[in-house]
Nucleic acid binder design. Structure first.
Lengths: 334, 334
DNA sequence: TTGAAAGCGCTACCAG
DNA sequence: CTGGTAGCGCTTTCAA
């Protein structure tokens, strides 16, 4: 920049203005400066120096609590990241990826990242990387939860959505059954009748159970009689297994599943009973497979959430509750 | 840092050394400095300032010539990126993503990115973003090609690999057929017997055709008699179509496809003839579907290429030719 | 409309 | 082993 100033016969400041504050320089001077800059192969202010001076990097960190390839294997994650990317494009912000090593995100990388804010994807409670991010004093936003102190959480109202989708699933049902995510890190497979949601450790599981319970009660069903199958994870096999193992004991006429995968697994086992209307099934996520299978489910826009998360992490004051809808298809009775 | 120095009763330099050059400070002083730093909530050198001074950012740009979600939809791309991420993890380098907007990667973003180098994924020739990256004077590496001046290209020896896989596919063949990528941007569907590879615009297509030709000649076949079906793209439907449309005219006993997708499409049409050994089929990529289908194919480690690309872009002198292997399975005669 | 001074937070270089 | 000086490239503030 100094070189350009010398060559153009002006002060450094004028060059700086020519690039960053066009209105503060006469048009003529500006043109001349820009021309000499071009001739000298100077393409504009150095971003690093700019940020140092301004105290703002214009970069946003995305922390993946998994290996990069692994994180992007999940289509949901991709939509979320894509939302972040869009927000970054709009605000001319850079996207810095902080993927996991084999053994957790290196805390020093999070701390040292030259960024204005952080977005986290699927953190577990007490993640040291999250703590490190919060400790930097820069805005932090995490998708889905958990809500650690100091970090904003962008998510949908799980309880309300659960109640709403359950209302569809429970229409005309007398013997419903719930396919749940694990209750806690133990990830123990077990069946509990009418569990107390408040005693469930995982927030997502807790909130959805609350919604299911509300819908069940509203439908005049006794929560205490409803079997909740806690699985080890959100896999199709898990949903299928729940049905094979438990169907004889308690033949359900409605299945509320916390994910499309679980629901799809159940549907494999249920077969034609779903099509005939003998059993209703609802899922969660609105995956493409769910659409193909005609599954009634909860749709949330992860893309929208990505945008919101990015804006929060960039310091905007935005409402963090995202929208959701229940997509009613053929897997439920009307 | 100045604060810490004052509080610890040492010079700023000593604090700097305590963090960055442990060996240049007495252990005792170091401990004291670190302790005061901790007490003051100072967590180490500011990365931005550090890079400004050192002239090195320790960040690497990855330019996606597609939307972020779209780029990561491709499993090959994910492996490549994952290799980059690993290299970054190893060298303690940050990963800056420069995804495409709707209408191309903004040139100013690649120019202004505060990074030490660039890695490009699937660029077309004459990409202005590539030119901008090269213009920065920082090292640039692109996967697969094209080889624009100033940018390193990491890739496998397509010709050699093609010859090698074709050798498998042509074993015992008298009437082979080739399923090719498009020859140029026109992407016109056409069948050419014994085309001259040198006149094919797309480098990948050109190189592979050369390899196929060499193998054909080595097998005593006349290149001029071999039909090459140029498709519009690398889709399964494209491979299938080629067979349906052309099989009656020229019933092949061997099919050399430039991608697993094309090969898989052909196999659908060929049905049991592949299993029986009446027709050999080879693909390229070693996708999981290829493995499931028992397809003989070329395997290249995109992950390895990602690592190489990252190291090049970070300024290391590394050999850019990556390894490949032919995976022989049941789709070819032994 | 233009410019001089000061300093963002840090480290290479040399001196002690 | 420790410290002073200078300056990375820029912009904010104030003055002309």
């Amino acid at each position: 920049m100094a070189d350009v100033a010398a060559a153009a016969g002006v002060s450094v400041m004028t060059v700086s203005y020519a690039f960053g504050r066009p209105d503060r320089v006469s048009d003529e001077t500006r043109q001349r400066v820009l021309a000499t800059a071009d001739a000298l192969g100077y393409s504009g202010p150095h971003r690093g120096a700019q940020s140092l001076r301004r105290g703002r990097t214009n970069d946003l960190a995305v922390v993946l609590t998994e290996t990069l390839a692994f994180a992007f294997d999940d289509p949901h994650a991709r939509r979320f990241f894509s939302g972040i990317a869009d927000a970054c494009l709009d605000t001319d912000t850079g996207l810095v990826l902080l993927p996991n090593a084999r053994d957790g995100v290196a805390v020093h990388r999070v701390r040292d990242a030259a960024v204005d804010g952080y977005v986290f994807w699927t953190t577990v409670t007490g993640d040291p990387a999250l703590a490190a991010a919060v400790a930097t004093g820069r805005p932090v936003c995490v998708q889905g939860g958990p809500a650690d102190a100091g970090a904003a959480v962008v998510t949908i109202d799980d309880t309300a959505a659960a109640e709403s989708v359950a209302r569809e699933g429970l229409r005309g049902a007398r013997r419903p059954m719930i396919l749940s995510f694990p209750a806690d890190r133990g990830r123990r497979r077990e069946v509990v009748h009418g569990p107390d949601p408040d005693r469930v450790a995982f927030p997502v599981t807790r909130h959805r159970l609350r919604g299911y319970r509300a819908a069940a009660r509203a439908a005049g069903l006794s929560w205490a009689d409803i079997p909740v199958v806690f699985g080890a994870g959100s896999f199709r096999a898990e949903g299928r297994r729940a049905l094979t193992e438990y169907r004889e004991v308690h033949a359900p006429d409605a299945v509320l599943a916390m994910s499309d995968e679980l629901a799809l697994g159940a549907m494999v086992e249920l077969g034609p009973d779903v099509a005939s209307g003998a059993v209703s099934v609802v899922g969660w996520d609105d995956s493409t497979e769910a659409a193909d299978a005609g599954l009634t489910t909860v749709a949330q826009s992860l893309h929208e959430q990505g945008r919101i998360a990015a804006r929060i992490a960039l310091g905007s004051e935005v409402d963090t509750t995202a929208h959701w809808t229940v997509v009613t298809r053929t897997s439920t009775r009307s």
